[in-house]
Amino acid sequence: MIPVLALIVGVVLGVILDPTVPAAVEPYLPIAVVAALDAVFGGVRAKLDGIFDDKQFVVSFISNVLVAGLIVWLGDQLGVGGQLSTGVVVVLGVRIFGNVAAIRRHLFRA
């Protein structure tokens, strides 16, 4: 419940404050958001599976974001940032789909 409220609060804050993304993090923010989404869906699935672990969620959330950003940054340094970010998005998208499928099985038993 608190995470849901926090999500709503974050969205509302984002709408109200409407900040400008600093140029330095601009390429990494979308990747970080997707990585965080992956972590959140994984957390929801673990919650439904009854194996949710706070520590694991926090660590996986932060490490997901950091690793995704690091990969893209590394790709930028190597000159393949666009391709690597595409690859990261694909991998995370596959994971998100898997997690959503598990959640769906839990909620709808189908």
């Binding site: 849901v4 926090a6 999500l7 974050g10 984002g14």
Partner: peptide, 8 residues
């Protein structure tokens, strides 16, 4: 999660 929503 709030940060996620904000960043999103």
């Amino acid at each position: 999660v709030g940060l996620l929503g904000f960043a999103l």
